Simulated scan of single mutants.
Amino acid sequence: MIITNVNLVLENDVVPGSVEVIDGEIRALADSPSRQPGAIDGNGGWLLPGLVELHTDNLDKHFTPRPKVSWPPFGAMRAHDAQVVASGITTVLDAVAIGDERDGGTRQDNLDKMIHTVINSERQGLNRAQHLLHLRCELPHETTVPLFEHYLELPEVRLVSLMDHSPGQRQFVNMVKYREYYQGKYRLNDQQMQEFERSQLALSARWSAPNRAEIARQCRERNISLASHDDATSAHVLESHQLGMVIAEFPTTVEAATASHQHGLMVMMGAPNVVRGGSHSGNVAAHELAALGVLDVLSSDYYPGSLLEAVFLLADDERNALGLAAATRLATANPARSLGLTDRGVLAEGRRADLVLVQRHQGQVYPARVWCRGELAY
């Protein structure tokens, strides 16, 4: 397969040219158009490496499309996979919550089904994108470590994150935002909300610190990548660094993001934050960190289509000095590198032919075609 008449988004530059793919691998790149008959005309669009997504809970929405509605697992997986690929994502870590009881058990009931569906569909070659697992460990629960240990030996587990969403700290320093979020999500009245807050604070005080230390220890022993979550202070970051974190997911302040970068953690921010122009929780905006040069990875988080759009928005944003090649690395080379996936993430000879042909219509970018391992997936 030859794709020509495209702007090749290389690791450090963007050049017009063409690419040749053989047996699912990039065999050659050229800075000139191809004259071969049958070459695919990219119509002057951009050819990017397939996007690498480290943290999305999009699978949840397909397993439970409405409250108290449970969808058949394979159908849910197919819909999720199709949406991911149609967003230009060719490698995805499906994030599943370990130990989260706050939704009345729905997410916990789905946990086994989701994990086994991801694994079985992947091993049977039924997915278009490659699906791996990200265990999101909600620390303030007595069930968290046992559940974590139950799934830890699965080879598909490539990332573990440690999070504590109890009120008054990290993501929810702002108590007004905390109450707005949870009262809206669970339809709690003021009295119920107060009881909920007390419960979460008590659970955090009892379980968060020991669970954090134990899970981090086991991940270090097995060389599984670790991510902090919602660090807000330099003290949080120092603890994350000492525990062996390699990624700082969604730091909530400039202080935490800067400290994470100084300690060698890759700073991840949400692509919806970029598209919306700021955090829905009132925390630091991703574009601020990009302007400071301390943004390393983008994640679509809860909206797969946001990832590609955020790359181009940051590339076009005059408040930073990224440019398209550097902005693309945030969703390709950098997340792949954080997991040790050295066979993808850049357009280079010998790398996997995970490719996204991007076009722009009325200012909006969109994937026109997506290839996974050289096979047309969208």
Rank of each mutant, 00 (worst) to 15 (best):
D31N: 15
V275R: 07
D301R: 00
L313K: 15
N58S: 11
T117A: 08
D81L: 07
C137M: 03
E197I: 15
A315F: 02
R198K: 12
D94E: 13
Q262G: 03
L132R: 13
E318S: 13
S161G: 02
A290S: 02
S208Q: 08
P251Q: 09
T144M: 00
N174R: 08
Y303K: 01
Q194V: 11
A235R: 12
N58C: 06
I26Q: 05
P37N: 03
A271T: 04
L314R: 11
G282T: 01
L147M: 13
S234A: 15
A257H: 13
M269I: 04
G104S: 05
I89N: 04
E288R: 12
R360L: 07
L135S: 01
L308C: 06
W46T: 03
H62E: 13
G125C: 05
I22Q: 14
V19T: 05
T233V: 04
L111Y: 09
P16W: 06
Q359G: 15
Q218N: 05
H263G: 04
T332K: 03
F196H: 13
N174T: 03
F196A: 05
R35P: 04
Q124G: 12
Q218V: 06
V356Y: 09
A227E: 09
E309P: 05
D103M: 05
L111A: 06
N12R: 14
G305T: 09
E214N: 01
A348D: 15
W71A: 14
V19D: 11
E149M: 11
I115V: 15
T144Y: 01
A286S: 12
R102Q: 14
R179D: 10
E221Y: 04
Q169G: 02
R78D: 08
N273E: 09
T258P: 05
E149R: 11
S306A: 15
C372M: 06
Y181C: 04
P251K: 09
Q194I: 08
N58Q: 09
P272F: 07
E349S: 11
A348F: 10
E249W: 10
K113I: 09
H261I: 09
L238C: 08
V85P: 05
M1A: 14
A129S: 12
S208K: 02
T4G: 03
L243S: 03
G125I: 02
V356I: 10
G340D: 00
R360F: 04
A129W: 01
Y378K: 10
P335F: 01
R136V: 07
T143P: 00
A248V: 09
T144E: 00
S281F: 11
N5P: 13
V274W: 06
V173I: 12
S166V: 07
R107Y: 07
Q191N: 11
L330K: 09
